[in-house]
Every structure is written in C-alpha cells, then in structure tokens.
Design a protein around this nucleic acid. Sequence first.
DNA 1: GGGTGTATTTCGCCG
DNA 2: CGGCGAAGTACACCC
Lengths: 242, 242
Amino acid sequence: MTADSAVETLSYPAPDVVRDLVERAIARGAMVTLFGPCTVEYEGRAASSLGPGDRHVTLKPDGAALVHTDEGQQPVNWQPPGCDHSVAVADGALVVRSERTTPEEELEITFETVAHAAAFDVSDPEELAVTGTEADLKERVLDAPDLVESGFTPLATERETPAGAVDVYGEDAAGRTVVVELKRRRVGPDAVGQLDRYVEALRRDLHADTEVRGILVAPSVTDRARQLLAEKGLEFVSLEPP
Amino acid sequence: MTADSAVETLSYPAPDVVRDLVERAIARGAMVTLFGPCTVEYEGRAASSLGPGDRHVTLKPDGAALVHTDEGQQPVNWQPPGCDHSVAVADGALVVRSERTTPEEELEITFETVAHAAAFDVSDPEELAVTGTEADLKERVLDAPDLVESGFTPLATERETPAGAVDVYGEDAAGRTVVVELKRRRVGPDAVGQLDRYVEALRRDLHADTEVRGILVAPSVTDRARQLLAEKGLEFVSLEPP
DNA sequence: GGGTGTATTTCGCCG
DNA sequence: CGGCGAAGTACACCC
C-alpha cells in the first residue's frame, strides 16, 4: 500500500512472455490484468459464448476472474473466488483458463493478441465500513421502538420460526405478538410475502388464542405491495435507515 | 479489436500527468485503469468509507466506475453506468470523482500515489450468447408441455394478472386453469410465495367456480419450499433448462 | 422514471 | 456444504 508497490507491465508482449509473467504473478499472489482482442467461453451453471472483441481481464489472487467490456458495471463473464487459474500458449494465442468444482465450472479466454499485461502486488488491510444498511435500521428501531408504534416492546431479534428468522419480534401495548420485517429501501410484493410467511408460521406455532400482528417497516411500499398488505391484514410503518 | 488497439500506459507518473492522461482518455471514449494506494468514500443510496490500501480502479466510457481489491468477485465500491467521471490534483494527490443524480450519488477515490495508469481504446461489437436460462426452460416447456404434465396445454406466456405476469398460463387435461412458475435452479420459499400470489390473484379475477392449479417447475426445491407448497395446495414438477 | 422479476446474481451468516 | 435472506444488488423489460 506504499509507493514501493511492485508493478510489472508489458506492451504487446509475445504470448510466451505473457504466459511467464502471469504464471509468476499467480505464484506470488499478485493480481493480473490483461487487455486485448479475445473470445470467451463459459460452461457451468449455465453456458455462454462471446465472439471476438477487446476486453479487460482481471485474475485475482483469491481465484476470482473478471472479464469486462467497455459497458456495464457487471463483468460480461466471470468466475467466483476459489478457482484455479492457468495460462498456456496454443497456436500462437494466449489461453487463460479458470476452473472450479462444486459446481463444475470453466471459463476460457483466448487472446488473439495481448495488447497490455500487468501484475500488481496488492496490500489491502482495510475493511469497508458501510452505513445505511438494514442492520442500521434495526438498531434505530431497537433504540426507539416507539418509531414503530407507541408502546411497542422488542423482545428478540432474529427470532426463529418454522418459516425462518424474524427481524424484530416483540409485543404491542396490548400484549399482542408483533412481527417486524425491516427493509432499508422501498419494497415490493416479495417483502410482503416474506412477512406473511413469518406471521402465518407464528400463528401456527403459538397457541391458537394468540393474536399475531405483522408490521413491515420500510421507507415506502409499491401500490401492489400495499394492496397485498391489506389483503393479508398486515401493516406498514414508514421509516428509513439513519 | 485488432492488434492496432491503442494502449497508453504510465508507471508511477506524477499526479498532473495522470490527470491529463485520464482527461484525454475520457474525452475520446477510452477505458481507464488506475492502480495504487488510495482511500475511497461513497455517499448516495447508502454511505461507505474505505481506509488506505492498494486497489485497482476502472473508469468505463459509459460512465461506470469500479474499485476492486485483491479479493472477491464484486467491486468494493462502484458507480453505475451513466455517471460523470472527473479527475483533479489536490495537495499532490490524484482525486477521481464519479457522480450522478436520481439518485444523488458520489464516489471519491483519492490516490496517495498512482503506481500504474492505462488508457485502452475498446472496440467490442459482439453480444454475449447465454444458454441455460429461464427463457430456455420456458421454450422447453412450450415445445413439450407434457414434461409438465400429460395433457397440459399452454395458452399464453407472460399472461398478466393483478399480481404480475405469469410465466406460462394454460389448462390441464380436465380444462382447469394452470399457472406455471419457472425457475432455472433449485428454489426456496420465495418462489412458492410468488406462485401463490399469481394463483390467488387469478382465483379472485376469474369466476368463483373456476379451479386454478399452481405448478412450480424447477430442478428441485428446498424442504421449506416443499412444505410451503403443501400448505398452499401447490404442485411441483422437476425439470431443468436444456 | 417506477414497478416487477431474473441472475452463472454475489455475499455473509448459520446450522 | 446447503439453506436462507440482504444488497448502494445490476439488468432487462414493460408501463
């Protein structure tokens, strides 16, 4: 992370020269990038084929692989962390392969030419600190339960039910059981379904005479979600992460 | 996409030299990559802070920005396509900013040092061809409806209901309405909820005497999903994409 | 631009 | 390892 970070680069190198650079880089745990005209084949959970074009390829020391075009935030092809990267020269082309098992997946990138190759020694001790998440919204609710409803008392978080864990479990001023489902942003029908599953599971699980209320806490809901809430007899409280 | 792809690179350049390279590259629609020790601040839909460390930064001509560490398939920070990239020198550091509106979002990367900078002219005329998707599974069902059930007749795809569009809508050998929800891979409780919403919506919408069956078509289901299917009186057929 | 659903989602947590 | 749900999810499609 200091100015002595080792960087090795090549411009329009011969295939065997790139191969050696990449092999050495992988061996020492460096990050590799390649750029140039290539084709990409993938087979695994699905299958894909990408004809010739210029792409930017990243091989990470944790085994992840990324193929980026000039468009989009997402890579056009990729491989998750934990893969084995290998590189070879075949018919004058550089072939990069990244494979894994469980599930069996393989990515193969064939460079007609490598326009640029680089190896970076990376040191990154820092963790990303994010705020505005659902966890922050939960803290806000636990710190001030009245934001949900006057008299609401949280009793547990992540309380287990046969349908999964409830975000916040508690009771209202009248002693009725309350299930709170938190969402950090505007929600659609899926979140209502989720809350409903928890409420139904608790109604089954608790004694038949126990009343169970379900409250969706989010900044806002879509029309369809609001209608679903009404149909299911569930409630909504508008609240956002701090 | 040929060997004459223009690539411009710099090793440990002075900040103002990188700034000029980046500005020229952005102006001509090239892709930019930077590597070196930096900090990253984000504020928008959420907010995040990342302390000093080595990262690889990509600025795409469509306005996307990516910040990658040595780990993970996902960027540690990013900006979606459509953002405005700008670069400046402040206190001897290179500051890269990427911003957009609706929603208001800003990403700021401050390089203590730039170890490597590159600009790539990208030409990529090809589209990715993927197989094994839900669309392929749908075709398989439409080509051979008996795979769902002997006597099943598809009548429409993407049929609209008050709860959203049904994947495949049809009728069984007895003339009963059938709603088919397709999933390309093993499914959990959420898919059952989705199917149930469609079935319930159609039961409301059609005449009260119309029987509506719901069939989940996927390679497999989890235990909880299977239980939910039973509770809701829905069915499951095992089928995978070709 | 918002709503809805898919994705080779990825990722983290937990049993 | 699989199940489950969150994510600044991204992305496509339709209104």
